[in-house]
């Protein structure tokens, strides 16, 4: 009996060692192209695998003469779209998003936009109407994309800025909305309807931002074009 036990034990350990050996062979299981020289050259070109992946100080160059961030290109952080639903989470604090008194104000302003004359480019009108329907479906990010397409095609079309500003305002991004409306204003000298509407947007944005003095000024301006 004893010897059987011992032999059994022997066999088992043998088997285990085989399993172990098999596992040792494991690291060999990998993708076919694993040329390390290639990898080293690649990392020269592509400074991806550096430590400062998330930081701003990604500067691979030793001869850099700039004391600060090498790429001060994109200050705004991206909108992060949550996993399931594609809705825009504004990057600023969410508390700013819902401010009851201005909601109505925004609605009123946005409704007034319907009176604006159409763009003379068919493609722009098409994109604006796409944006409207996407917005209606709650696809805010997609709506923004449509409006920015329109803005690239027609950077001097005031209606595009009007929509962009109104959309940002309804998303609670009042500071952005105000600036977009200010830019829109520079495109519409002597166009009263637009001037009125942009000043109304500015007023609503400033109200949203708690800038009551600025809001009052914008209302006075708007009234000039009523």
């Amino acid at each position: 009996m004893n010897s059987i036990k011992i032999t059994l034990f022997k066999y088992m350990s043998l088997c285990l060692s085989v399993v172990f050996l098999g596992a040792c062979a494991g690291p060999g299981y990998g993708p076919i192209v694993e040329d390390l020289s290639v990898q080293a050259r690649a990392s020269q070109r592509i400074p991806l695998a550096t430590n400062n992946v998330l930081g701003n100080e990604t500067n691979p160059s030793a001869t850099d003469t700039q004391p600060r961030k090498p790429v001060e290109l994109q200050k705004p952080k991206p909108y992060v779209v949550p996993k399931a639903k594609v809705t825009i989470t504004p990057q600023s604090s969410p508390s700013k998003v819902v401010v009851a008194p201005t909601e109505k104000n925004i609605e009123v302003v946005i409704k007034q936009e319907e009176a604006l004359p159409p763009s003379d480019q068919a493609v722009v009108e098409q994109l604006l109407s796409n944006a409207d329907s996407l917005k209606g479906q709650g696809k805010m990010a997609e709506a923004v994309i449509q409006l920015q397409r329109a803005q690239r095609i027609a950077p001097r079309e005031p209606k595009v800025y009007a929509r962009l500003s109104a959309l940002q305002l309804s998303l609670g991004e009042a500071a952005r909305a105000e600036q977009l409306a200010l830019k829109g204003l520079t495109l519409v000298p002597n166009k009263k309807r637009y001037q009125y509407y942009f000043w109304k947007l500015i007023a609503a944005s400033r109200s949203h931002l708690g800038n009551s003095k600025g809001e009052a000024e914008a209302i006075i301006q708007a009234d000039k074009y009523k």
């Binding site: 705004p76 803005q151 962009l164 977009l180």
Partner: peptide, 10 residues
């Protein structure tokens, strides 16, 4: 699936 968009800033 959309992860991020970079909005127009002025």
């Amino acid at each position: 699936q959309l992860l991020s968009i970079f909005p127009l800033i002025v």
